[in-house]
Simulated assay, not measured.
Amino acid sequence: MFKRIVVPTDGSEITSKAVDTAIALAKVHGAKLYAVSVKEPFPYSAVSEMQPTPPQEFFDAQERIASTRVKAVLDAAKLAGVPCEGHTVEALHAWEAIIEHVERNEADLVVMASHGRRGVQALLLGSETQKLLTHCTIPVLVVR
């Protein structure tokens, strides 16, 4: 049924549950996984004479963090015998980068974690999962 599954990772504990679910689904369906970690862009608006972190150091750190997150998914998939590709992408909004990744890889399912924020906290912080659910044209499995 599913042949290409995208699993976004932010390295959190709840995301590891989504990764485990995505791997299990991929194994059952004989699907390929596409792991993606979204890097934050450099906050150019904060640039001043006393910028604490030079842009290249920021970019390098973001790449190291995102690559480590993706490698964890690649390792787990390999251990389970599931084919997996890993990618890091830079974006202001993670949900937009995930949808672009879905389209680029012609995915037919997204398995994503939700931190389960409710009430005012959800309103103030927003929800990447909610935005993805609103804008994505393929099924999204939300893991809590």
Rank of each mutant, 00 (worst) to 15 (best):
R117Y: 11
E85I: 08
G119F: 00
D108Q: 10
P54R: 13
D75G: 07
E106N: 15
V89K: 15
R64W: 01
L79D: 15
K71H: 08
Q56S: 09
V110R: 13
A113Y: 09
C84E: 10
K71D: 12
E100T: 12
H93L: 01
N105H: 15
A77V: 07
G119R: 03
A61V: 01
Q62Y: 12
A122M: 12
R118H: 10
D75P: 07
L74I: 08
F59G: 00
A91E: 13
H101F: 15
Q51H: 00
Q56K: 11
I98W: 02
H101C: 12
P54E: 02
V73L: 08
V120M: 14
G116P: 09
W95A: 06
H87R: 10
P54G: 05
A66R: 06
S48Q: 05
T53N: 02
A91F: 09
P52E: 03
A94T: 09
A97W: 15
G86E: 08
E49I: 07
G119A: 05
A107R: 11
A72T: 14
M50D: 09
A61P: 00
G116W: 15
W95M: 00
L92I: 10
E63L: 10
V111T: 03
V70P: 00
K78W: 01
K78T: 09
K78C: 01
R64T: 14
T68Y: 03
P83I: 08
V82I: 09
A91W: 05
A107Q: 13
V120T: 10
A91L: 06
A76Q: 08
I65F: 01
R117V: 03
V70E: 06
A91Q: 08
E63W: 03
E85V: 14
A77Y: 06
E106I: 00
A97K: 12
P55M: 07
P83G: 02
H115K: 14
S114T: 15
T68S: 14
Q62I: 04
P52Q: 01
A80H: 10
L123F: 07
F59L: 11
V70L: 09
A80Y: 07
K71F: 06
A113F: 12
G119P: 05
Q51S: 13
V82L: 05
E57Y: 00
A97N: 10
D60S: 12
V82P: 05
E85F: 04
R117W: 11
S48H: 05
P83N: 03
A77E: 12
R64D: 13
H93C: 00
L124W: 04
G81W: 06
P55Q: 10
V102Y: 14
V73F: 05
R69N: 15
S48G: 14
Q121N: 04
H93I: 00
A77T: 09
H87Y: 15
D60I: 01
M112F: 03
C84A: 14
L123I: 03
G116Q: 12
I99Q: 13
V111D: 06
I99D: 13
P54L: 09
A91Y: 02
R69A: 04
L109F: 02
R104D: 01
T68F: 05
A72V: 08
V110L: 13
T53A: 07
D108P: 07
Q121G: 05
T68V: 00
R104K: 15
G81R: 05
I65V: 09
A80G: 05
K71A: 14
